[in-house]
């Protein structure tokens, strides 16, 4: 990163905002792995309203009703970081939030979910939508909280499942010996 970018980030941080939330459920899987039930995201390039708007927009693009805002905040984090490094990205995000609000005659966030969705659909072909989508399709599904929600162990599988249930499906008949093979004795 150039010195220029570093100084710009430092400047933006000085005027930055914080996006906060509380895990919706303290009994779900996220509560088990989250260090705390509350979370805070320090924004570098966006203000809190912009951050909250982008988060809600992302919820419409990839709506998982029981997936906590804390996971969607990871998408905002990546978009915000991109905006801090690239003025064009920052302008695109800020302009999109302004357009959403203008089209809503106030704060887009205060409209009903159905009304919000109409605006999301209308923006499908815009660079803003593409940016949110392409960032979220990676960020939203590539973190331990998402892994816990969707039931994917990720790196925990690294040692192998040979002793950990690779063949533990029992609601269908097992294939005959000729179609399968022996579990190695040395395993």
């Amino acid at each position: 990163m150039s010195d220029h970018a570093v100084s710009r980030r430092a400047f933006l941080r000085a005027g930055g905002a914080v996006l906060t939330g509380t895990l919706a459920s303290t009994s779900g899987v996220l509560a088990l792995i989250a260090p705390s039930t509350s979370w805070a995201l320090e924004l570098e390039a966006l203000d809190a309203h912009q951050g909250a708007t982008v988060l809600q927009f992302t919820r419409h693009v990839f709506p998982h009703d029981r997936l906590d805002d804390a996971v969607y905040a990871l998408v905002v984090k990546d978009l915000d970081a991109g905006a801090a490094e690239d003025p064009t990205t920052r302008r695109m995000l800020i302009d999109a939030v302004r357009r959403l609000d203008e089209a809503s005659g106030g704060e887009w966030l205060s409209r009903s979910a159905a009304e919000q969705f109409v605006q999301v659909q209308a923006m499908e072909a815009t660079p803003f939508f593409v940016k949110v989508h392409s960032t979220a399709v990676v960020s939203l599904y590539d973190n331990d909280m998402a892994f816990a929600h969707f039931g994917y162990p990720g790196r925990k599988g690294d040692p192998g499942y040979i002793h950990r249930g690779f063949n533990d499906l029992h609601w269908l008949p097992d294939p005959p010996d000729g179609a399968s093979g022996p579990v190695p004795e040395t395993a």
Binding site: N167, S180, P182
Partner: peptide
Amino acid sequence: LPGLPANNNFKVMHA
């Protein structure tokens, strides 16, 4: 050489 042992994904395919 023996075949590999069936995992869950293959059990579904085979059934």
